[in-house]
């Protein structure tokens, strides 16, 4: 498995001040990723093992699993997401404060897995922007720890202050309500997201 590029590979034509601020902010973010444990099926058991003392994701600053989305940074969707549960999952994601990330743990949440079924979401990227996919049924805690470390590297590559100084990227700002429509680091929806894929392009949308 190839590793992601290190952080300094991108630090070419940026100023010292901004890059150092980015580094500082990213250092803080990546070492305090509080997970939102959305344990939906058997993957939740592996998630508990991962949080527990044996695998101990406290080593990565991610041990503080909060059951309130208001206090979470990374949402770990562990298990089979049904369409009936999808509304709740999306609400939980929306209630998490920015910056936030999503890990699809297990094949069910990554692609629907063996549930090629009318009731199961065929990959949570149909409703959420996913940062890291973890294969396995269920994946071992090691694999999810690997996903957390990959997510840390992904956070290292983010440029929150550069985006802030550019202004345009942050420009999705609603003057009426004085709120950001989109956080600077907000993940981009994947091509499977319904905003990108037209409804008639979805093979599941046949009448």
């Amino acid at each position: 498995m190839g590793s992601l590029k290190p952080a300094d590979a991108h630090a070419t034509d940026e100023g010292f001040f901004v890059t150092q601020l980015d580094w500082l902010v990213n250092w803080g973010r990546k070492n305090s990723m509080w997970p939102m444990p959305l344990g939906l099926s058997c993957c939740g058991i592996e998630l508990m093992a991962m949080i527990g003392p044996k695998f101990d994701i406290a080593r990565f600053g991610a041990e503080a699993a909060r059951f309130s989305p208001r206090q979470c940074d990374v949402m770990i969707v562990a298990g089979t997401l049904t369409w009936k549960m999808a509304e709740a999952a999306r609400l939980i994601y929306d209630q998490m404060p920015d910056p936030k990330w999503v890990v699809a743990m297990g094949v069910c949440s990554s692609s629907g897995g063996m549930y090629d079924s009318y009731s199961v979401v065929q990959g949570i990227d149909m409703i959420l922007p996913v940062d890291v996919y973890v294969p396995g049924c269920p994946p071992r805690p090691d694999a999810v720890i690997d996903a957390l470390m990959k997510l840390q590297k992904k956070i290292e590559r983010e440029r929150p202050f550069q985006l802030l100084l550019q202004g345009d990227v942050v420009g999705e700002y609603d003057q009426g309500t004085k709120r950001f429509l989109r956080a600077p680091n907000h993940a981009v929806p994947t091509t499977r997201s319904h905003e990108v894929l037209p409804p008639e392009g979805n093979p599941r949308s046949k009448a």
Binding site: W83, A86, R90, D116, S117, Y118, M126, R204, S205, K206
Partner: peptide, 17 residues
Amino acid sequence: DFPHQGIEPDRLYREWD
């Protein structure tokens, strides 16, 4: 006569969304 992959399984979610 119901297909196992469903008929517009995401319809309710999309309407809610």
